[in-house]
Amino acid sequence: MLAYKVDTVEIETSRFGTLAVDEGEVISLPEGMIGFMGLTRFILFRHKEGSPFLWLQSLEDGELAFVLMDPLLLVSDYDLNITPEDTALLGIETPDHSVQAWAVVNIGRQDPPEITANLLAPLVINPRTRLGKQIVLFESPYAIRHPVPLKGK
C-alpha cells in the first residue's frame, strides 16, 4: 500500500490546504525564484478552469506561492531572448523547441489595488524536462510592473 505513496509528494499549504502532487508533475527550478534561492521544487496549476492565472506553489515551503500569467495575454508579440547558457540549463535541444514563459503577477498596495505582471523576468519552463528558471531579459523593453487590465469599478 505504501508503495503507491512513494511517487506522491504531500505539502501543507497556507492557501490551498494539503496538496498531494505526483512526483512527475513537479517543476524543478535549480536556481530557485530570484530572492528565494534554495527552494527549487514547485507545482504549477491553473487558478480556476478558464482563468488566465496560474499558481506556482513551493513544495518545500507551504506559504510560498506566486501567481503567474501568460505574458502573451498582455503583449501579443512578447519575445524571449534566451542565452545559450540558459538553453543548456533548461535542456532545450533545438532552438525552436517550445518553452513556456510565465510572468510573475503582483498586486500593488494602492487603493484600489492594481495588478501588474513582471515581463522583464519571466519564469521560463521547458515542459519536456520540467526544468525552469526565472530569466532576467537583457536589453529588453519590458517592464517589471506591466499593468494587467481589469474590468469595472
Binding site: 525564484m33 530570484i34 530572492g35 528565494f36 510560498l64 506561492a65 506566486f66 501567481v67 510573475v104 503577477v105 503582483n106 498586486i107 513582471n118 522583464l120 523576468a121 526565472q134 532576467v136 517589471i144 510592473r145
Partner: peptide, 15 residues
C-alpha cells in the same frame, strides 16, 4: 535590476 526583481518577487509572494 536584480534588486528590483528580488523586491518584486518578495512582494508577489505575499499575495
Amino acid at each position: 535590476i536584480y534588486q528590483k526583481i528580488h523586491e518584486e518577487n518578495r512582494a508577489a509572494a505575499q499575495i
